[in-house]
Write a protein that binds this DNA or RNA. Structure first.
Lengths: 154, 154
DNA sequence: TTGCTCCTCACGTCACGTGAGGTGGC
DNA sequence: TTGCTCCTCACGTCACGTGAGGTGGC
């Protein structure tokens, strides 16, 4: 279990780590290397840099490039639109996660209500049986002590 | 209260009703009439038509045109991007409303829990006082009747 | 007749992608 | 030296907006 978590964290780190130089990244994204430089100039992508200044693209960068590629090629969007859509998709994903969290919370609250309902039912059951026991001490006409309303602080 | 609702419904109907011919709508949206025809051909807007075939734009149409205008002029987006962004903004608005509904529901559930907590506290309180009353009937050494464990069904 | 509507066609502009050209370090 | 990197500049293409041109009904 601990090892699985470690593996996942490592994979995440790797996904964000700059490993491809521009020619490789361009081939993986099916783009011209010059296009990648252009996208960077417009702020659509920010690859890391080696100490010498060479761009280093991560797997996450390549994925993002492919999403951009789909929007421009398949939908015919320009870069201004791509930028805005990427923003909105991020917002949407965050909101989606929030909805899921709230749904789980809602379920948990429902369970809390059910648990308290059960507790109330249990307490009422106890009260009923106590009442039944008390009544047994008072069979009409056979009680040894007179029955009177209980008065507090008497 | 009923009249306020009626007013709102009327306003909504008016907002969706085709009232402006193309030259007026174009002026309200600060656009060329030909541009409006182009947007319609591309499916970005669907004005109603008079029996004679004249386009009739509603206030909602004009608002939509202004939103499109802002995206193309201020952000430099093309129409493919506008289309996608309008879709995503709709989705986002729906999800936003859902989050608000869920928040209200969550609050309501919290209140339900609080109400049941109060009921539990009340029942426990009752049980405590019943116990206290029973004890009061059994002062050691002064009871008129012998105290024995209660046996069911005896 | 004027001014609107409808339509189609064509052109100018601009964004984007890509190629060329020149530099520098493994 | 080869093949990559870096950069800037320039050109071809395409989408979009707008204008022209011709029609028809209040």
């Amino acid at each position: 279990m601990a090892s699985r978590r470690t593996t996942r964290v490592t994979a995440q780190v790797d996904r964000a780590r700059g490993v491809f130089m521009i020619s490789v990244a361009a081939e993986l994204a099916a783009m011209h290397p010059q296009t990648l430089r252009m996208y960077e100039a417009r702020g659509l992508i920010e690859p890391q840099r080696s100490p010498k200044g060479t761009r280093l693209y991560s797997q996450a960068d390549v994925d993002r490039l492919r999403r951009i590629q789909a929007m421009t090629t398949e939908l015919g969007m320009n870069l201004a639109g791509v930028e805005r859509v990427l923003e909105l998709e991020d917002k949407l994903a965050r909101l989606q996660r929030r909805v899921e969290t709230m749904e789980r919370r809602s379920d948990a609250l429902q369970e809390e209500i059910a648990a308290r309902e059960a507790e109330i039912a249990r307490l009422e059951q106890v009260r009923e049986s106590v009442r039944a026991e008390i009544v047994r001490y008072e069979p009409p006409g056979t009680s040894l002590i007179p029955i009177r309303p209980v008065r507090r602080g008497s």
